[in-house]
Design a protein around this nucleic acid. Structure first.
Lengths: 364, 364
DNA sequence: CTAGAAATAGTAAGCGTTTACTATGGAGAA
DNA sequence: TTCTCCATAGTAAACGCTTACTATTTCTAG
């Protein structure tokens, strides 16, 4: 007895590559079929037999081979999610919702990141197809490059044909004839609401900063922004719109440049909270007080918004909910089970949350 | 022709559940073996044949079945990671490192969350065993319950026996005879350094708040804290140590209570940045200025630390690096390939980053 | 007491790949 | 010309499960 572990230790038994169902069957003196049935519990197995089997299972530290199971059976009990970046809070909260709902529905969650590369995104969808996930959820705004859309549409069809589905989360449809499911939030409405709030506080020249060009999220937010301007009869000034990126760094550096120009704006709409954080930093550096000298708003209401000083007035997007709904919809038999309309679309609302970063413009 | 998509569309072809390698073989007029070889490219296939095969692959929108592949071949090209919460920045940054390194090494990444439940953690390790992941990485401090340790040790052995490995990331060893790999950071050293910094600024009564009791991370940070006190000959006062949790909410509420007692501390050490953020909020609410009236430090240096005002002085932990190293070590043939010592342990350093939340105590 | 229905267990056919082994054809060597 | 050796391609045996069928008991009812 040179073994360190005691003979009753589970798991340690085989030196090979893990016990198989056949090992368990042999140990329990039954056939593999019986073991399989005892484990899945969908077929009667005599109590004594079952107990013997379970004892062997623990003794051997047996766990089923998920691949063999997926190959023989139908479903993989896995959902795939594709996001930009695991550490970006916008995506992280959606991923949390996905992870939680998936695990509530007994699924595992394959999370991958594109790092903002759309080619990679397509490749990742294929990877998930290889994995035969029960659904693949792609999150976040999309490029509107037609070639890309076509490629994604092809994949949506392939997934649908294979009994899986492509879920678009927070991004526009690929077209009416493409079999996808969609979970979105009212991006344009939120932008409208917060812009209107700024206007109602007396602002007339509002700077818009951030968000990649030709990107669906940017387009919707900008659309809401313009609609609010139009509704109040305020002229659109192209000099006040600065697309670019979604990061904090972009907000900071672009704001620094803009501050040197004489644009005469009294409020800034950051395309998201991170951009707004950068804007705030640039303002702080210049000694411009917020909200006394300048009002600032963001979008998304990620935790940083309430961490900032002043606390950021922003648009709340129910991110975690979005993720949960994506999974519900993905796994639902019929769209109605998940509370979606019959075109498989579900929209969650947004609303503005008022904190301390906005006040009426200074009288000049 | 009632089909909407054009006949040259890839993918749309079969109505079934996805094309198989046999379909491709038939379409290309070769055997499945040849297709398999053409795809894996590890065996000569005539150029013309190969091209024919690839054409069929695109025509059919074929992607290999990862499960069949895993079953027949050896490896799954997947690593599993188990964290507390996807949206907690501490874990999110580690997860990002894991995800990036895994994808750099051609692996997919299965991410799951325990929500702080250690039973669930064990169950998740088994789930990953089922998936036959090339490695399973468990992240973050661990409970020191002996039963739990035993269970985890069993699983480590099972994984090792199956040719996979258990990687402990930021948590203590399970014992010398348990086959694990470890990536850690100098938790105790960081706590020592920042406590010493506080002392060097003149603080003598330092409050410690946060971190679950009987938790390895808490234990190490507290150990560093005490060592610094001892080294300077400052008495340990149990009334100044308040374990509890790692969240922002805990920092806030506990600090409120503590402020009502007359403890006479001049500085607060938050067990992590989130706790420190809560502390700062409680202080702000009471109108206590930081750092003039009270100094505050945190731990981890997650983004919120530089978002806060005052910017938080804290201990920097190279989280993303930690995740990357975990994957490198997990996948390395020999520990030396990954720069680890021969006992499969790798430690990354921590250092304090000084910002604006500490100053000498007020003369009273 | 016996036919027929449960209840329980076993047999074996896949599931979609990879890969060891085998087969074929033609080029170069003798 | 004949033999060998490559370069290719095919055959078929796993891989570890699930499940449709089949077989054996054991009840239950008539």
């Amino acid at each position: 007895m040179t073994e360190k572990s005691s003979p009753t230790d589970p798991i340690h038994a085989r030196g090979g590559s893990g016990a198989t169902i056949a090992d368990v069957a042999q140990a329990a003196g039954v056939s593999v079929a019986t073991v399989s049935r005892a484990l899945s519990g969908n077929y009667p197995v005599a109590k004594a037999t079952r107990e013997r089997i379970f004892r062997s299972v623990t003794d051997l530290g047996y766990v089923a081979n998920a691949h063999a199971r997926a190959l023989a059976g139908a479903t993989t009990r896995t959902v795939g999610i594709i996001i930009n970046d695991v550490a970006d809070p916008f995506f992280a909260y959606i991923a949390r919702g996905v992870e939680r709902q998936a695990s509530a529905e007994g699924r595992l969650c394959l999370i991958t990141a594109t790092h903002g590369d759309k080619e990679r995104e397509l490749a990742l969808v294929d990877l998930m197809r290889e994995q035969r996930t029960d659904a693949v959820i792609v999150v976040g705004g999309a490029s509107d490059d037609p070639r890309y859309r076509k490629q994604m549409a092809d994949r949506a069809r392939a997934l649908a044909a294979a009994g899986s589905s492509l879920v678009l989360c927070g991004r526009p449809s690929l077209g009416p004839d493409v079999p996808t499911k969609m979970v979105t939030y009212d991006n344009e409405g939120g932008a409208f609401a917060i812009t209107d709030y700024l206007i109602s506080q007396g602002h007339r020249r509002i700077l818009y900063v951030g968000g990649p060009r030709d990107f669906s999220t940017t387009a919707s937010r900008l659309a809401g922004f313009y609609r609010a301007l139009d509704a109040r009869g305020i002229e659109r000034d192209p000099a006040l719109v600065h697309e670019g990126a979604f990061g904090r760094g972009f907000g900071y550096s672009r704001m620094r440049e803009l501050l040197d120009q004489d644009l005469g704006f009294t409020a800034v709409f950051g395309a998201n909270d991170l951009v707004a954080a950068g804007i705030l930093e640039a303002l702080e550096e210049r000694g411009i007080r917020v909200p006394q000298d300048m009002s600032v708003v963001g979008y998304d209401d990620v935790p940083v918004a309430s961490e900032l000083r002043p606390r950021l007035t922003t648009v709340r997007v129910p991110l975690e909910e979005l993720g949960r709904e994506a999974v519900r919809l993905a796994l639902a038999q019929s769209p109605h089970d998940a509370g979606a309309s019959s075109d498989n679309t579900l929209t969650v609302g947004t609303h503005i949350v008022i904190r301390d970063s906005v006040s009426p413009p200074k009288q000049s």
